[in-house]
Amino acid sequence: MVIGERKPFDEIMRMAEGLKKIMVLGCGGCVTVCLTGGHDEVRVLSSQLRMARDKAGNPIEIIEKTIERQCDPEYVDQVESIVPEVDAVFSMACGAGVQFMAEKYTGKPVYPSLNTTFVGGSKKEGYYVERCQTCGECKLYYTGGICPIARCSKSLLNGPCGGSTKGKCEIDPDVDCAWQLIIDRLKSLGMMDRYEDIMPANDWRTNRDGGPRKMIREDFQR
């Protein structure tokens, strides 16, 4: 899933400066699962904003709403009647959701309340880790199911570098060395011969380096 973290409150307050009425819009997708942008978080942020603005003697009116997904026009359409009533929308979705809202409601400022951080999963409740960089050409077959692009700090395809110490990355003793994990895994699978194959220079065209990407299912385009 896409992981997001709420922006610092002061930054959200600055974006809301001069606004009298806003909608705080949650998303029922990934950011609900990672506990940063769903129904409950909409309530918390809205309360915080109201309190802070009341305290400053400059109250703000807030409509709270959460839709199924903000990255889908079908659901984005559902707030059509509310958007004209507000000065701006504060989206609690990932960057994709914010932009889908902005694309639909062209005359209305749509502001992000989260920083979209990475594609990953939860190790346990409230603990999220990065696993994929969406490079567009999955290499997990070669690397024992552990991604060097997402998990090696230098994205080395023929690692590990000389900074790997006791299974940890040179940048931080709390970060696992992805190549130590890959080697341990290849060894346990009896596939160490794969280590000696040189991975050629990557074709980054499938990554964002090829420009913004799209995926089209032709059979659905009729």
Binding site: T165, G167, D184
Partner: peptide, 13 residues
Amino acid sequence: ADPFEIRVPRLAK
């Protein structure tokens, strides 16, 4: 650097 056992194979690469 670690893991030690791949340091010769890495040179081979």
